[in-house]
Design a protein around this nucleic acid. Sequence first.
DNA 1: GCCAACGTTGGC
DNA 2: GCCAACGTTGGC
Length: 136
Amino acid sequence: MAYWLIKSEPDAYSWAQMQQDKRTHWSGVRNHQAAGNLRAMKIGDLAFFYHSNVGKEIVGIVEVAATAYPDPSDETKKFVMVDVAYKKSMPKPVTLAQMKSEKSLANLQLIKQSRLSVVPVRAEEWQKIMALGGLK
DNA sequence: GCCAACGTTGGC
DNA sequence: GCCAACGTTGGC
């Protein structure tokens, strides 16, 4: 099983909305590298839900519920989307500042490539962030 | 095919 | 509001 981190601006689609919807189409990705990550997702993979711009923190966890399929909102037919389902909220949101101050998270793709909206997370990074967020 | 100009994302 | 990073577009 793989781990990921997906970003959303809360003004566009917030965690509160995700909790309400329970499941949503993760559409609108228009970057080939991010799309490649979407294609690599498997059912049951977990992803952190990160609020970019406003908040700049990981607020929850979602589970991949459908693997990549064509994004109908993309006229070029090149991009895909996945479905994700609400899993749980972070008892304590983990901020970007917190992650940057952790030496063990120095290689986070989120930090190294801040503009990418779908990034992989290593297992050890996942565990570390879970602990920071008050889970397990 | 190169590269300058421009647009977008996202942190500060 | 500014700026760095980086992707895309279009002229040549």
